[in-house]
């Protein structure tokens, strides 16, 4: 192999290309990151204010966008009490910290990320399994505090273990789940029939 290396295959040229491509991609990513973070801050169109837990939330097919979208409805305070934005944030924060401390993500997925041993929690608040809107809050609280005793039977035989979740923490988790169900996830999951769809077909 004695012939000269052609110019396009030279080490120096590829070194330059590598540097420019990397730098260019990274700069673009930074730019997109600023844009995305500003569009997903709490209180915007995509990620709602924490006080959205004061309202009715649904998830329906939007004919114009041709995908499923969260729908924020009339007032429907969580646990029967209207909360301020600060109180709501405190409650959702307690829920999020409990979700992390109890390691929910190593059985469940949240927004589709996590483990695959138990159902996705993205729209858990809207799941028809909670029977109807009147029963839902109490069923959820009871289940979280004692998942073995209040197991919702399923054919796989899997059960959620008792994680020592307190009453206060359970309230936080329910608030977190309600808030999360209002996030605009670009139509994921698709074709999800909510608890409300079951009530008013």
């Amino acid at each position: 192999m004695s012939q000269q290396t052609p110019n396009w295959a030279s080490e120096a040229r590829w070194k330059k290309i590598a540097i420019w491509v990397t730098a260019g991609s990274f700069v673009l990513l930074i730019f997109l990151t600023f844009d995305t973070l500003s569009k997903t801050s709490v209180g915007g169109e995509r990620v709602r204010a924490y006080s959205v837990i004061n309202q009715e939330i649904d998830y329906r097919f939007d004919a114009q966008k041709n995908r499923f979208m969260p729908v924020i409805g009339k007032e429907a305070p969580l646990f029967g009490k209207v909360v301020t934005e600060a109180e709501a944030e405190q409650l959702v924060t307690l829920g999020k910290k409990t979700v992390q401390s109890k390691n929910c993500m190593n059985c469940h997925t949240l927004l589709g990320n996590g483990a695959y041993y138990a159902p996705d929690l993205t729209k858990a608040w809207l799941d028809p399994n909670w029977i109807d809107a009147a029963n839902r809050e109490n069923l959820m609280l009871a289940f979280l505090k004692d998942p073995v005793g209040n197991a919702r039977a399923n054919a796989s035989g899997r059960k959620m273990p008792n994680l020592g979740i307190t009453d206060e923490e359970a309230h936080g988790i329910v608030a977190f789940l309600k808030w999360m169900s209002a996030i605009d996830t670009n139509g994921f999951p698709n074709n999800f029939k909510t608890i409300n769809a079951k009530e008013q077909p």
Binding site: W14, I17, A18, V21, T22, S25, F26, L28, L29, D35, T36, K39, T40, R46, V47, L111, G112, N113, I183, D184, T185, N186, G187, F188
Partner: peptide, 23 residues
């Protein structure tokens, strides 16, 4: 390096379809 970073850095976007981030 050029090909991997050139595709992989912005390829990050395949995890941003459904988590609430813009379309």
């Amino acid at each position: 390096v050029a090909l991997m970073f050139g595709s992989g850095i912005l390829g990050l976007g395949h995890h941003y379809f459904w988590i609430g981030t813009p379309d």
